[in-house]
Design a protein around this nucleic acid. Sequence first.
DNA 1: ATTGAGACCTGTCGGC
DNA 2: TGCCGACAGGTCTCAA
Length: 270
Amino acid sequence: MPELPEVEAVRRELAPVLEGAHVSRVVLRRGNLRRPFPIEFERRIGGATVRRLTRRAKYLLAELSSNDTLIMHLGMSGSFRVEPADHTPEPHDHVIFELSSGRTVVFNDPRRFGVMDLVPSAGAAEWPALADLGPEPLSAEFDAATLARVCARSKRALKVALLDQHVVAGLGNIYASEALHLARLSPRLRAAAIATRNGAPKPAARRLAAAIKTVLERAIARQADYNDASRFRVYDRAGQRCRRRGCAGKIKRIVQAGRSTFYCPVCQRT
DNA sequence: ATTGAGACCTGTCGGC
DNA sequence: TGCCGACAGGTCTCAA
C-alpha cells in the first residue's frame, strides 16, 4: 500500500527496529525485483550499522555506517515485516535482513515492482529517480506558487499532472483523486488552468496545494493509530454518494492516462 | 519537449 | 466449480 503516507508509516514502524541496529547478514532469495540487485549487495550491507532511516517521496533511504545508502521502493505490492530470527519464509519474501538484535526485517513483494539499490551516501541525492523528484509536498518548499509554476504550460489533465513525481513527489493514484475532491477541482481540468499566464497562483492552485497537504497529513495521522483501512472521499467509491456536506452527487470513475480517477461530477465541476 | 501507451509481474475478483 | 478478462496503491521506456 505504498503512496507517501503508507511509506511514511512503514518508515515509522521500521525506524525503531533498524536505526542503530547492526546487520549481521543479508539473504537474497532471488536475484532481482524490477531490476537486478546491485553487485555484492549482501556483502556490502552485512556487518554495517543503520545510522538513519529516512523517506523521500515514496523512497526509503537507509544510511549505513559503511557510508553507503540503501535506497528502497515498495512498487505496488511491496511490504516489510519484522520477524523473530527463526521465522519461516513466506511466498515472495525476497530480501531478509538479519539483525544482531535477534530480529529480522523481511521484504515481501509479490509483483516485484519494488526496487533496491545501494549507492555511496554522498551521491544518493543524484541517484537518477531521486534527482528528478519534485518538491516534498509536506515541506514549506511546496506551495501554491510552486504548484502553479510547474503546471503553467502543461496541457495534460490536472489529475495526470499530480501523478507526475516531478510536479509533486509522493502523490499516487489514491491521494491525487482525494486531493482534487477536497479542493473541489475537476480531475479533467487542464493543468495550466490553475496557473495564470505569468505563473502566479490562482485561488484554485492555493486550494489544491492546501488540499494535497491536508489529505496526506490526515492519512499519515490515520496510519499512526491504524485501524479501519480507509474512509476515502472518492477513491474506489464509484456509484456511491458524494461525502461532501450538502452535495447529492454520485461518484464517477473515469480513466485518465490508463489509470482510474474517481470524482464527483457535481461538486468538482471546475 | 510533452504526452500517452505499453511493459513489467502476480493476485484477486466478478461474470459467464 | 472453472476459466477468462479486467483491474490493482508505480515507475520506466519508447514512439508519436
